[in-house]
Computed example of a mutant assay.
Amino acid sequence: MDITIRNITPGDNAVLANIIRMALREHNMARPGTVFTDPTTDHLYQLYQAQRSAYFVAEGNGQVVGGAGIGPLEGDVCELQKMYLSPQSRGQGLGKKLILHCLHFAKTNGYTQCYLETAPELEKAVKVYAHLGFRDLPGPLGNTGHFGCDRWMMIDL
């Protein structure tokens, strides 16, 4: 698959929201307290227009196959957010490529640490995060509103 990573555009909102919600259904996480019910999931372009924020879209052979974003959390700590891929694009190193792209953006925008929230149901993603150097935290950082996630991780940039 020929992969391109680019910045989100307004026309990406619907397809990305669909990819995110399909992935959460697939992993039995279509529940309150996750991005499944988060209203910003339908408006990612608008959400990531804030300073020091960005959402990156992965295209495979001209089709949107996933994305990931960086948003501010507290001070010089950012959050890796809404990192989801379509089923056909998984297992090819795309998740790692997207995460590294996001971490590069974070570092060049003055962040010193990157936080994320996930769940055991997303075990393959958790393995990628750990492989890249994210370490487990004993509890959540900040108030993201995603109480349905019960695994928290951080990496120094």
Rank of each mutant, 00 (worst) to 15 (best):
T34N: 10
D42W: 06
Y111N: 07
G95C: 11
G75K: 15
H131V: 04
L157A: 13
A50N: 13
P39A: 14
D12N: 11
Q51D: 15
P39F: 08
A130I: 00
A50M: 09
E79H: 10
F147D: 15
L100Q: 15
G91C: 03
L116G: 09
Y55E: 07
I5K: 07
G110I: 07
P87F: 00
C114N: 11
L157W: 09
A68S: 11
K107V: 07
I99D: 02
L157E: 14
M153D: 01
A54G: 13
G142S: 13
N143M: 12
R90A: 02
V65L: 10
C102Q: 11
Q92C: 08
T112K: 13
S89I: 06
N28W: 06
D150H: 15
A68P: 01
T9R: 03
L94W: 07
D42L: 06
R6H: 07
K107R: 15
R90T: 05
D150E: 15
V128Q: 01
C78L: 09
T118C: 00
T108H: 13
P10W: 07
M22K: 11
R21S: 01
E79A: 14
L157C: 14
H104V: 06
S86D: 10
G66N: 10
F105K: 08
Y48S: 11
T41D: 07
G145L: 12
I20T: 10
N18M: 05
P32F: 14
E123R: 02
M153V: 00
N7Q: 14
L47A: 00
I70G: 03
Q46L: 00
N7Y: 08
P39M: 12
E123T: 03
L85Q: 07
N7A: 03
P10I: 02
